Computed example of a mutant assay.
Amino acid sequence: MAGLEVTDICKIIAAVFLPPLGVFFERGCGTDLLINILLTLLGYIPGIIHALYIILKY
């Protein structure tokens, strides 16, 4: 696993405050974004967990 870059840290900060924004920065508009929006609407914490998973996965 490579080290974190500055852009990754910015994405993580965005994901904590607005999870879909962090996913959008990482993957763009797609299925992962829609899943994250749904999870965020169902509960803020699941949205954050999913966003962090998407950002840190690659």
Rank of each mutant, 00 (worst) to 15 (best):
Ile45Trp: 12
Met1Leu: 15
Ile49His: 00
Asp8Ile: 07
Gly47Ala: 01
Leu18Gly: 00
Gly43Arg: 10
Ile55Gln: 04
Leu18Ile: 13
Pro46Asn: 00
Tyr58Glu: 14
Ala14Lys: 04
Ala14Met: 02
Ile48Trp: 06
Pro20Asn: 03
Gly30His: 02
Thr40Ser: 14
Val23His: 08
Met1Gln: 13
Leu42Lys: 07
Pro20Trp: 00
Leu39Glu: 08
Leu41Gln: 06
Lys57Met: 07
Ile37Glu: 03
Lys11His: 01
Ala51Ile: 09
Gly3Ile: 08
Asn36Thr: 10
Tyr58Val: 08
Tyr58Pro: 15
Gly3Asp: 15
Ile37Cys: 07
Arg27Ser: 14
Gly43Ser: 14
Val16Leu: 15
Cys10Glu: 13
Ala15Pro: 01
Tyr44Ala: 07
Lys57Leu: 06
Ile13Gln: 06
Leu41Ser: 09
Pro46His: 00
Lys57Gly: 00
Leu34His: 09
Ile12Lys: 03
Gly43Val: 11
Lys11Arg: 13
Gly22Ser: 04
Glu26Ala: 13
Thr40Asp: 01
Leu39Ser: 08
Ile48Gln: 10
Ile37Gln: 03
Ile54Gly: 06
Ile49Ala: 11
Thr40Lys: 06
Leu56Ile: 08
Gly28Asn: 07
Phe25Lys: 11
Leu4Arg: 06
Cys29Phe: 14
Leu33Lys: 03
Leu33Pro: 08
Arg27Val: 11
Leu56Pro: 05
Pro20Glu: 04
Val16Pro: 00
Gly43Lys: 13
Arg27Pro: 00
Thr7Asp: 10
Leu38Arg: 08
Asp8His: 12
Leu38Gly: 12
Pro19Ala: 07
Cys10Ala: 15
Leu34Arg: 11
Ala15Tyr: 06
Leu34Ala: 15
Ala15Thr: 07
Leu41Trp: 09
Ala2Asp: 13
Leu4Met: 13
Arg27Phe: 05
Ile54Val: 15
Met1Val: 15
Phe24Pro: 06
Gly22Trp: 02
Gly22Asn: 02
Gly22Met: 02
Ala51Tyr: 05
Leu38Trp: 06
Thr7Tyr: 12
Asp32Gln: 14
Ile54Glu: 10
Cys29Lys: 12
Ile54Lys: 11
Met1Trp: 13
Ala51Asn: 09
Ile9Gln: 04
Pro20Leu: 04
Ile9Thr: 05
Gly28Leu: 04
Gly3Tyr: 10
Ile54Asp: 04
Ala2Arg: 15
Leu33Ala: 10
Ile45Asn: 01
Tyr53Arg: 08
Asp8Thr: 13
Leu52Lys: 07
Lys57Ser: 09
Phe24Arg: 07
Phe17Glu: 00
Ile12Val: 14
